[in-house]
Design a protein around this nucleic acid. Structure first.
Lengths: 159, 159
DNA sequence: ATATTGTCCATAAAATTCCATATTTTCCCT
DNA sequence: AGGGAAAATATGGAATTTTATGGACAATAT
């Protein structure tokens, strides 16, 4: 275990998917999950991208309360409810591995490698090939939209 | 180290990278980090230069809160998440050393020496050769542009 | 039965801890 | 101020632990 314990999902890890569909959850992600007292991980297909969205069950509670907070019959509420309907709770075995549900694997185009991508409070699981395309596109856009960097540097200013 | 306890990353230090990829973090940098209560350091590849960007780990929390402050599905949020996906948290061992991640070493063209360059609130890690080129270019440009520099005085400085 | 799931063991690679040493720097004493 | 003991640094290497990953086996469900 890494001495440093930042409690957010960080960095990208590429792990192998074996013949039985098992794949190791990166150990630093497992640490974040255990800090959240998550019994397992929650997975659901992304509707924006060909990837799997993942988080501890903390995140699901947030989504549930968001739904409560908005109009029950609004489109937004329905979108969020779709997430819940599609989500699955997956248990992590004693060696730190999970089995990715078959439908999700198809949705993400994953075969024998899976990229776990840390996004702070949540993470994504991609096929490495799709992820590198996505990443490249994001980098280009981030460069065009200089605003991003401004936000960061202004919040550092305090210190 | 008792010296001048300046709480910003300052000056440049060239340290050896051993066979295992370990390199000592300059002790004055370590002092800054411990003052910031950083348990480790955050590293990520620079978009602008062939070098590694570094800072204390509080920066990650700033980025995560920036993400929280905006719409989860926006481009803006994704831009910021890209930074998290590329960043790594590295722990500093009891002897004050870190292991530079292989991808970052490649990006920066580092082999057996690494230059730690203090930039105030953050720092960079360069291969000494690339850094000297970079510095030279910066100096030339500064001279051509007349090196204007506006100093913002802090509130305590009166006048 | 047959396929799927969960538990357990084995192992190689990588990371972390621990120890050793040479060189400085700091500090104290006379 | 100078000498030297003590602490701090940068660096090398060894020992130990953690990970990721593959396979065997029993338990379950279809």
């Amino acid at each position: 275990m890494l001495g440093a314990a930042v409690s957010v999902f960080l960095s990208t890890f590429e792990n192998k998917v074996d013949r039985k569909g098992r794949v190791s959850v990166p150990s630093s992600f497992r640490n974040v999950l255990s800090q959240q007292r998550s019994t397992g991980i929650i997975l659901y297909p992304s509707f924006k991208h060909p990837c799997i969205e993942g988080s501890g069950d903390e995140r699901i509670h947030e989504i549930v309360s968001s739904i409560d907070a908005i109009d029950v019959f609004s489109d937004e509420a329905e979108n969020l409810q779709t997430i819940l309907a599609d989500a699955k709770q997956i248990s992590v075995d004693s060696d730190g591995r999970v089995i990715l549900p078959h439908e999700f694997v198809l949705h993400a185009g994953i075969s024998d490698l899976a990229s776990f991508v840390g996004l702070g409070k949540s993470f994504q699981i991609w096929s490495p090939k799709n992820f590198s395309i996505h990443r490249q596109r994001n980098r280009l856009r981030a460069r065009e939209q200089g605003a991003t960097l401004r936000i960061i540097s202004s919040s550092t200013e305090g210190t």
